[in-house]
Design a protein around this nucleic acid. Structure first.
Lengths: 343, 343
DNA sequence: GGTTAGCACTCACCCTAGCAGAGTGCTAAC
DNA sequence: GTTAGCACTCTGCTAGGGTGAGTGCTAACC
């Protein structure tokens, strides 16, 4: 049975109040602060109903009410109003992200900082999986007798470089020939597709040439480290400002979990391919340890392909209205910037 | 007046005990745990003397004693025994640092992780100041009509790359000519020395060639971002395990300070040029906010030049014997690896 | 003169009891 | 269906007393 309009108003009021104060909310407070035109006693009756239906809970007998995970879920889905970023905040995003970034990786890092700063919660960002990007340029640069630098530029401008050892010194013309061959064959190819089959084909083509075969080995070695997905964390310090984490042990547990890149990656990517904003509330989260946390994530994309994720982690009592707006805005900006960079 | 041998023994015993237990140490404990051959009463008398001389202090009347900053200083300078790393630890350092690092920067980052893990305190590392490294290779790679990638390899293998916009599309031969000119003129030159004078000279040489002049502008732009020194922090989580930081506000203050890269940099570098191990205890630290912390730092070097610093930050009640050994060992390993890489 | 036992004293820490305050559920009246 | 009144519950705070670790001092001892 759907909630009456008045119940919705009360649930919204309690959620708002609790998000601001972190204190259980009583019927008097609601009656005083939100003019619903009814007395505390009436609100008390409604609250009892809402609790019975699972939207609210009581930390202990005769305390005020706080929203349950189900309550937050309903609030997020049906009750909250979108928050507007103000002029200064928009300007800050624009200038920070559009500033000079000598490397694309820096842009992603910067996004995490911005996200943490604006939301005042902890920001999580997964850097693009480069193995799904198209190769734009691939070049060997001889350094000295035994070392060459393999530089890989992947759309829309991510640069990876690896120093690799060679078994013999390469001549300038040889390097030129290799570079030429590589770029002719690999321009525009998705890095992940280079795997065994394509390398095999190329090996066929150059069968008779020891030089090229060796170059292919170098390439393979360089591509190997491409799959590593980087996770950026920022603003863990904001956890301490939340009263629910005033107990130092809780923060310790959380930080220990977040130290594990794999976990953070899973956290953000169990929704891979799923674009748009996504909110995970408390117990909805599969990873225990985040039972009292909520996560708001969004993807950033290039040409319709999900490149990576940005997210904000905070207590379930998080300011969803604001966080959703911020995450959405930054993800959109990132997508836009990456697309522009590829032009 | 110098301390008697017995006073030294007692000071050492108290320091050891306090480092282990974090509890003020009483005369009975000392008599029981360390066989000095005297009764608690005698020890009490000696402790009273040590307090009068400023080596010990009492948190409150009729509690045990704890070392003062002066006490720690004396301990560090004259009393402590060097700690030996065990087999497993040595193997771990070797394998972690000597493992595959596609980029030198990763090596530095890895050192911070290792330092934090082994010491169980917070690790601080300043990455090498590249502007003092010799240029080994410098190369433009055309990406598309408007962008080229400037790749800079600096001894002993640090790679920096920047995408720069050009005002016009460059021909293949032009790029080759530029690369050739650059490497001929700049090989082995210290990045910092490229500044205005050398660029000016080069500009003279190519005065009549618009192409080269433009290339020089690109180079200047790329070099600009070289001065930025990166600071790595790791193991901040270990702060929480220290009883002196069980008060969440203290940790918050500390983390807020550490968030500021400039401060961390200053912290490590007020000893720049000064090689060897350095220990800063509590109030010896110029930055207030670190009044209850100690810092153990060492430089890592290349060819006798200080490249950067590694350090460990913990409470004044830190295990100096162990930390000093670890910091020394890792700094030495880093120096060695960097030197080897340059061969 | 240095060392030791004995003793009174101090102070943090822990536990308990009591009190105030916020908020509830229930009942009865509107 | 709504509201006022009231008894009840539970937390958080404060004050008081007991405990224990450790000291400084004094006097006796070698």
């Amino acid at each position: 049975m759907p909630l009456s309009e008045r119940k919705k108003q009360i649930l919204r009021a309690i959620t708002h109040d609790y998000i601001n104060s972190a204190e259980p909310v009583g019927s008097r407070t609601i009656a005083r602060r939100y003019s619903l035109g009814v007395s505390p006693a009436t609100i008390r009756n409604e609250m009892a109903d809402l609790e019975e239906d699972g939207y609210l809970e009581q930390p202990y007998t005769s305390a005020g009410r706080i929203p349950s995970d189900k309550g937050y879920r309903f609030y997020v889905d049906a009750l909250m109003d979108p928050h507007k970023l103000n002029e200064a905040e928009i300007r800050q995003v624009q200038s920070t992200l559009r500033g000079e970034h000598s490397q694309m990786g820096e842009l992603v890092h910067e996004s995490a900082r911005l996200l943490a700063f604006l939301s005042q919660y902890t920001a999580l960002v997964v850097a693009p999986n480069l193995s799904h990007g198209a190769i734009r340029r691939l070049q060997l640069i001889p350094l000295d007798e035994w070392n060459v630098l393999l530089v890989l530029v992947i759309d829309p401008g991510f640069v990876q470089s690896h120093i690799v050892e060679t078994t013999r010194s390469l001549q300038v013309e040889e390097v030129a020939r290799i570079n030429d061959f590589f770029n002719r064959r690999l321009f525009g190819v998705m890095a992940a597709d280079i795997s065994s089959t394509l390398l095999g084909e190329m090996r066929e083509e150059v069968r008779d040439e020891a030089l090229m075969a060796e170059a292919l080995v170098l390439l393979g070695r360089g591509l190997g480290s491409l799959n590593k997905e980087q996770v950026f964390l920022d603003g863990t310090i904001h956890l301490f400002n939340q009263p629910e984490f005033k107990d130092i042990d809780k923060v310790k547990v959380l930080l220990n979990i977040l130290d594990n890149e794999k976990v953070v990656w899973d956290l953000l990517n169990d929704t891979l391919g799923n674009s748009g904003i996504r909110i995970t509330i408390g117990s909805e989260n599969p990873h225990e340890g985040f039972q009292h946390c909520s996560l708001v994530t969004a993807s950033y994309e290039l040409d319709g392909h999900v490149l990576g994720k940005v997210g904000v982690l905070g207590p379930t009592r998080m300011n969803y209205e604001r966080v959703v707006t911020i995450v959405e805005y930054i993800a959109a900006n990132l997508s836009e910037l990456l697309t522009d960079a590829g032009r």
